[in-house]
Nucleic acid binder design. Sequence first.
DNA 1: CATAATAAGTCAGTCTTGTTGACATTGTAA
DNA 2: TTACAATGTCAACAAGACTGACTTATTATG
Lengths: 167, 167
Amino acid sequence: MTNSNNISGESLLYLTDKQLRQGIEAMFFAYRGFTADPDRILEEYGYGRAHHRAIHFINCSPGTTVNNLLNILGVTKQSLNRVLRTLVEDTLVEVKIGTRDKRERNLFLTDQGYELQERLSLAQSNRMRQAFKNAGPSAVSGFKTVLEAMMDPELNKIYLNLREAGK
Amino acid sequence: MTNSNNISGESLLYLTDKQLRQGIEAMFFAYRGFTADPDRILEEYGYGRAHHRAIHFINCSPGTTVNNLLNILGVTKQSLNRVLRTLVEDTLVEVKIGTRDKRERNLFLTDQGYELQERLSLAQSNRMRQAFKNAGPSAVSGFKTVLEAMMDPELNKIYLNLREAGK
DNA sequence: CATAATAAGTCAGTCTTGTTGACATTGTAA
DNA sequence: TTACAATGTCAACAAGACTGACTTATTATG
């Protein structure tokens, strides 16, 4: 199956099953690490990853609408609503009726919500910073390039829009 | 693109919040793409990602025990058992009582199970192959380096063991 | 103005997949 | 033999995803 070993000059353009399998497993295990630290914090609040995702993207785009969030997160209205309701009840998220269109609801983090966002972001960033440091600059560049190539085209657009929006 | 990205030669050794946030979002969106293709196949069978993971690692280590699988997957015995039971009922996985220790159960894919594994693996590999091709060899190397640095140490050990085992 | 379309929220029911607790079986050691 | 540990199974439950149907405001269109 594997005709050549991965040491010394095996061309990565000729991708073996083994290399691809390793890539798959790397994604699997790394994603676990990626979510581990925030998960521990969320547990204190009785929240899950769904809450984290909502908080993250409301923070990125303050005043975003429910519909916009649905597109980004790729979940159903009912699923997001359950999460948003608890966040509003716990006064981490504030909902304001749209000024331009009164049907819309604009979402903002409260100070309390921002505080949790900072905690989550810090925990996740710390691990990523460490990984980036260990791997070095060129590895970071490669990391992002591959991930971007792995996204669905529509999600890539959303991702790039967020990049713009975040200055 | 190589040593400095973005505007004005921002060094990647000095990691800004923005760079870290982009990394976080890249992981989020890429993981969605990573699982999208297998998910569609699994739906045909009424299976979920849990089934995929079990099939993947049984394929990697034929004859593995339930306990070993638990360590790799990081779920509870009961959770895995439900998944395994359906796979056995559907004759995708075969369970053999351990020869050395009769308490143990050794897990194998049947021909049918191997067939599904191939389909899933192919779908996921195709996307990864495409991403690797688009990104180029050095990016692939960086991708793996960062992911490995992002894993929990224990998971990294398991990951490396699988690498060895897979020849 | 009447009607359709849109944004958001809700209710009910289902599914996957995780959890805990209790229990059965097998193997080993006192 | 009896006690204990390792392993695997069963039952019940919860989070969080889903679909589908429905309501309420608001806006857009005929």
